[in-house]
């Protein structure tokens, strides 16, 4: 706890390295914001359709006289959605890694996204839900149920929930959930076309009508996650030590987990399941700003937004004139990272 918040008066001089580290972190935060702006610009300018700069400007200013300008106008909500969903997933992954003290935690690997998708599919097929709000509530309920289930299964029995056990429980839940999605949808020809959207996440069909209802959930999730930063730092010391420091362990965990579930549930409800962003963003950020959650969480959100924007742009450019769903790109790029993380760790730590 050497580096306090910047505004607070400091009782004694902080040693120089801490100063330097803090300045460095501030730099990374600024660089992240710049990179986010750059990625958003890329996402607006490049797509499946090659567009001249004049048309980009026209599309942004709301004039949609030409086809190219209209294409750019469609990219605006898409870019916003990618940034929001990426930030939500990155932050949610960072919080999950903190709560479970598990470097392999990710909404995709832990089966939380699959649970959300299953819940929505069941809601559509059996209960006839149609409104965006209903999708959101169902997805969040599904995500919460899956998170509790996976964590319970992973930590049943002797010993703590090791990364291996959580990952296996998550993989099992994912396989089960996707089997059940197919089982629910196969007899229903009327909704079969929409299933793919619940198997591979994408931001292609983004619209303001889809994004706005999710905003309150995302904001609540961001708030809950960010206020958990301090208790996550203390939990990282171990449960007993954290309790000794005055943390109410169970409550702190529940608050942080609720924030993470709100974030990834809302993101999944709007985009479908997108994996590995929540794994990659915190790992990258830990290399840059260290392990303190006060810094790690906001930077992870930034990094998640940048990663998802870039993945989306890559998916649009790689398959011209068609598009790759962003969920495919993140899995293809993220899985090797997962393997790298696994390889780096000692077997005993798995």
């Amino acid at each position: 706890m050497t580096a306090g918040p910047v505004a607070e008066p400091v009782p004694e001089p902080i040693p120089a390295p801490a100063h330097a580290r803090r300045r460095l972190r501030g730099l990374w935060l600024a660089a992240g914001a710049l990179a986010l702006a750059g990625a958003a610009a890329l996402s607006l300018a490049f797509g499946a359709r090659a567009v001249a700069w004049a048309d980009v400007a026209a599309g942004l200013s709301g004039r949609v006289d030409t086809l190219d300008a209209a294409a750019v106008a469609v990219r605006v909500p898409r870019t916003v959605l990618a940034a929001l969903a990426g930030a939500a997933l990155g932050l949610s992954g960072a919080v999950m890694q903190g709560v479970t003290r598990n470097p392999l935690a990710d909404p995709g690997i832990l089966g939380v996204n699959a649970g959300a998708a299953l819940a929505v599919v069941i809601g559509v097929a059996w209960f006839g839900i149609e409104s965006v709000e209903a999708y959101l509530w169902t997805a969040i309920l599904g995500a919460a149920a899956a998170a509790c289930f996976v964590y319970a299964v992973g930590s049943l029995g002797r010993g703590a929930a090791t990364p291996l056990r959580l990952a296996l429980a998550g993989a099992a839940t994912s396989i089960a959930a996707s089997s059940l999605v197919v089982a629910v949808v196969l007899p229903r020809n009327d909704i079969a076309g929409g299933v793919r959207a619940w198997q591979v996440g994408g931001v292609g069909g983004a619209s303001w009508e889809g994004i706005l209802p999710a905003l309150p959930f995302l904001l609540a999730g961001f708030a809950l996650s960010l206020i958990s930063a301090r208790s996550l730092d203390q939990l990282a010391l171990g449960e007993e030590l954290a309790a000794g420091l005055g943390v109410r362990v169970a409550r702190a965990r529940a608050v942080a987990a609720l924030g993470a579930v709100l974030l990834c549930g809302a993101a999944t409800a709007v985009c479908g399941p997108i994996g590995f962003v929540g794994l990659a963003a915190p790992h990258l950020c830990r290399l840059l700003v260290g392990v303190e959650h006060r810094w790690l969480l906001p930077v992870s959100a930034l990094a998640g937004a940048i990663l998802l924007l870039l993945a989306d742009v890559a998916g649009r450019l790689a398959a011209r004139p068609a598009e790759l769903d962003v969920g495919l790109v993140t899995a293809f790029v993220g899985a090797p990272l997962f393997i790298w993380i696994v390889r780096r760790r000692k077997v005993r730590a798995l």
Partner: peptide, 13 residues
Amino acid sequence: ARLILVGIGVSAM
């Protein structure tokens, strides 16, 4: 343990 986790990653890819 490593084999299983690597397998899970490869299969996601």
